[in-house]
Amino acid sequence: MHRSSCLLTAALIIPPQGSPIIGGGQYPKPGEISLAHRGVLFLDEIGEFSRKTLDMLRQPLENGLITISRTHATITYPASFLLIAAMNPCPCGYASSNGHYCTCSSKQILTYQNRLSGPLRDRFDINLSLKPVDFTATSMTQEGDLSSIVRERVREARERQYDRFGEEICNSRVPYEVLLRDRPLTGTQQSTLQQLAFKKNWSNRTQIKIIRLARTIADLQGSPAITDQSINEAINLNTV
């Protein structure tokens, strides 16, 4: 995920001849991704957005900036945000459901899911497939850590990253050659990732995302080096 320092709520701006997400117009104005700079942008039903609009998210997700070029001006806005998105497994929403019948054909499901291009999917750090919640179950209450404990764990993990890199930058943004400079992967870990990448046809970006995520998990666990456990967790969180 891309780092964020606060949660921002922004009004929807729909510029003429522009995208409410990206921004634009005859005189370029910022869109939702810039209004959410250093915050969180949640796109519900992301599969309902046009593929063209979604692919325009690739640049800001990669470098935290968005450049809008028009006849009157070319403007670059900041757009470093945490993107959270949700979508149904199919157009009707009932694929793989135990309680409802899915009316979509295999072709319709594939077309719907392909609205998110491969290059855009590669830019997500975590991919989760959620199951319906049974609210009638008596054992659905689970014990977990208090928010204050989780917040402290995250703060400590960030401090470890700042100390390691010598500046206030996190694993998601630091150059890859710097990420593993002091604590590289072991030979066994490299070999395992290479074998999985070949078997599952992962792109280079997906492999790097997994390593960045594993480094963050290790930081949350207080480990100075990337562990086999953190790599396994990163793989499970990144690939559905």
Rank of each mutant, 00 (worst) to 15 (best):
K131E: 09
P132L: 04
C102F: 04
I126G: 08
T103R: 15
C102G: 03
Y101N: 14
G99V: 12
L128K: 03
Q113T: 08
S117N: 04
D122L: 04
S105W: 11
D125G: 09
K131S: 12
R123Q: 05
G118E: 06
D125C: 07
S106P: 05
C102L: 05
S105F: 08
N127T: 11
G118N: 05
I126N: 06
Y101D: 14
S106I: 12
L128E: 01
Q113K: 14
S105H: 10
P119S: 03
T103V: 13
D122A: 10
L120E: 01
P119L: 01
P119V: 02
Y112I: 02
H100C: 13
S106K: 14
T103G: 10
H100M: 15
Q108W: 00
R123E: 04
I126R: 08
S129V: 13
N114R: 12
F124S: 07
R121K: 13
L110C: 06
L110N: 10
S105G: 12
D125K: 02
N114D: 10
Y112L: 00
L116C: 04
T103N: 15
S106D: 14
L116N: 05
H100T: 09
K131A: 11
I126A: 09
N127L: 11
L130W: 06
Y101E: 14
D122I: 06
I109G: 00
R115L: 02
Q113E: 12
R121M: 12
L110R: 13
C102K: 08
P119D: 03
R115T: 10
L130K: 08
D125Q: 09
L130D: 06
S129K: 13
Y112C: 02
L110S: 15
N114P: 00
L110P: 00
R123H: 03
S117M: 09
D122N: 09
L116D: 04
S117W: 04
T111S: 14
S117Y: 03
R121A: 05
D122C: 08
N114A: 05
R121Q: 06
R115M: 00
R123T: 04
L130A: 11
I126M: 11
L130I: 11
S105V: 11
N127K: 13
R115A: 02
I109C: 02
Y101A: 14
L120P: 02
L116G: 01
S129N: 13
D122V: 05
G99C: 10
L120I: 07
G99A: 13
T111D: 15
S106N: 12
S106C: 11
F124E: 08
Q113D: 09
R123Y: 02
N114K: 12
P119F: 01
L120N: 02
H100F: 15
G99F: 11
P119C: 05
T111N: 15
I109P: 00
N127A: 08
H100Q: 15
G99Y: 10
Q113S: 06
S129T: 14
I126C: 07
T103S: 15
Q108M: 09
C102T: 06
L116W: 00
R115P: 01
K131T: 11
N114V: 01
L110F: 10
Y112R: 00
N127F: 08
S105T: 15
Q113C: 08
L120H: 02
T111R: 15
Q113H: 08
K107C: 07
D125Y: 07
L110D: 13
T111V: 13
S105K: 12
G118R: 10
